[in-house]
Amino acid sequence: MKRDWVILVCGAAAIGALGWSGDNYFIRLLTILCMYATLAQSWNFIGGFAGYPSFATAAFFGLGAYTSGVLQNQGLPILMCWGLAGLCAAVFAVLIGGAILHLRGHYFAIATLIIAEMLREIVNTTPNLTGGGMGLNLPILRISVDVQSRVFLLAMLVLAVVTTAAAILLQRSRLGFGLRCIQQNESAASILGVNAYQYKTAAFGMSAVFVGMAGAIYASWVNYIEPPDVFDILIAVKPLVMVLLGGIGTIFGPIIGAMVLLALEELVWRNFLTVHAAALGVIIILLVLFLPNGLFSLLKDLSAKRAKQ
């Protein structure tokens, strides 16, 4: 556990230092990395620890983005908007979790998929509040572009660190222990006194709060949001791919997955712009078929082979 903290602090310091000295393109990449890490880490709370295949990340992300966007346009201070966005996403997750966390497997997956679609439709049909299908402009920060990019990197970095810290604390807590039991055998967990419903709801809420804030920071960063962008199903699927890449139910797996996916995406974006979705699809297919236990399983296999020789 101590080792986890050391890695976290060193990693955060390294990203901070790199960002401070880097150019704007590099800062942009690091900001996305921190955002991806936050999303992946958050998904891991419900999908990894508790074992519930959630596709609600897009719903929380979009909800956070729109909550903060609307509030910022009302003139509220930006930090307060980000905080309220996280709160709003968490409350929403707890409420909706109460309704759908009794579902298992496919049914849970579908219910979470539909939540994002519902929210997207609600935004589309309330143009007075949210701008509807036309999208929503956010107030522009009156500071220089260079400073801005660093401010948003710092915000996302702090968020990613907090989310990872929450994961470290969770792993060695009563809640984390209970979630692992639920993941392996929910009815046996109940018989041993685990309040499964409460714990799952807590995990779902945790998987929402930081994602909501990430959506809020993203909205402020890009200045303009629209429903297909922030409720994109890819926002729900990418975290899952990152966690699968890095190793499910681990602390730093999601972050490593985020790095790998981002690197692949950049490669693809630069070289095959029109088929980037297909390229992501190919990555997913290869990952599922050949590396279902993540990249580390590959390293383990390799080292095992080397040991044999």
Partner: peptide
């Protein structure tokens, strides 16, 4: 996830 990837 696999069918999603193929769909992409």
């Amino acid at each position: 996830t696999l069918t999603f990837g193929i769909d992409l």
